[in-house]
């Protein structure tokens, strides 16, 4: 079985964001980057499948600048077999269609049976790459999966809908799956595996070799939204803040008298 996992490096969402000098994106220096949370579930699920099957190859692919290699190394340390770094210093300027195109041109002649991705990235949050990729490759595609099982050439998954409802769906291979929060619990890469990952193959391909499409969405600008004021902000010693809060609740709600 050939498995591809696509991962992206994103900043920690609890960071303080600034807008970059070109006004198009957030300033990337001074941020700590990590693997997109949704993609971590994708890696874990791919590695679990490989462990279950005994024989399978898991390729971890990421598009981005040099630092992206760190994310790939982590995927290798978690258990992927081979890394593919598509070097692109401007990956943040690519729209979802271009990203999907890059992945598709890499994957088209490799016969992947299953491609795992996160359902969305934490920064861009478009939730498009997986389904577009499936269209470009002509694969089946199921999004937002919260449970996964492989049996006899078919995948059986639960796809999350709204309000606590899930749809049980099965699909034939080849298939693109986008992973949702809670699909699994991601392991820590162990130190021996970090060391082993060092010896695993990590190839680099320049993005220009894989992309000659224009973006379909133009990014005009990025900005920090104005704070909607109105809410009262309470700060200081717990004791005093608690008293203040209680008096506000007594005044403004009917639940406390």
């Amino acid at each position: 079985m050939n498995i591809l996992v696509c991962i992206k490096q994103v900043p920690d969402m609890e960071s303080k964001f600034k807008i970059s000098s070109d006004g198009q994106w957030y300033e990337q220096s001074d941020l700590t980057f990590k693997i997109n949370e949704y993609d971590e579930y994708a890696i874990e699920e791919a590695v679990r499948l490989k462990e279950k099957l005994g024989s399978a190859e898991v390729v971890a692919l990421s598009i981005g600048p040099e630092r992206t290699k760190e994310a790939i190394r982590k995927a290798l340390a978690i258990g992927a077999d081979k890394g593919v770094h598509i070097h692109d210093d401007e990956s943040h300027k690519k729209d979802s269609f271009q990203i999907a195109t890059i992945i598709a041109s890499y994957a088209k002649d490799k016969n992947f049976d299953i491609i795992f991705l996160g359902m969305q990235s934490q920064d861009r949050a478009s939730a498009q790459v997986g389904p577009i990729l499936s269209e470009l490759l002509g694969y089946n595609c199921i999004t937002t999966i919260v449970s996964f099982e492989y049996q006899d050439g078919k995948v059986n998954v639960k796809r999350e809908l709204e309000g606590g409802i899930k749809a049980k769906v099965s699909a034939k291979l080849p298939v693109v799956l986008t992973c949702q929060l809670g699909l699994n619990t991601v392991r820590y890469p162990t130190l021996p595996n970090i060391m082993k990952a060092k010896k695993k193959e990590l190839i680099t391909i320049n993005v220009n070799e894989l992309l000659n499409e224009q973006p379909r969405v133009i990014n005009l600008k990025a900005y920090i939204p104005e704070k909607k004021k109105g809410g009262i902000i309470l700060e200081g010693k717990s004791d005093e803040v608690a008293d203040k809060l209680i008096s506000i609740l007594k005044e403004k709600t009917q639940v406390l008298r």
């Binding site: 990590k34 290699k69 190394r73 982590k74 820590y188 162990t190 970090i194 060391m195 990952a197 060092k198």
Partner: peptide, 15 residues
């Protein structure tokens, strides 16, 4: 090195 950073990252998140 990449490995040392990854060790730092892993141990930090565990800690």
């Amino acid at each position: 090195t990449d490995e040392e950073r990854m060790v730092q990252d892993t141990v930090r998140s565990f800690a």
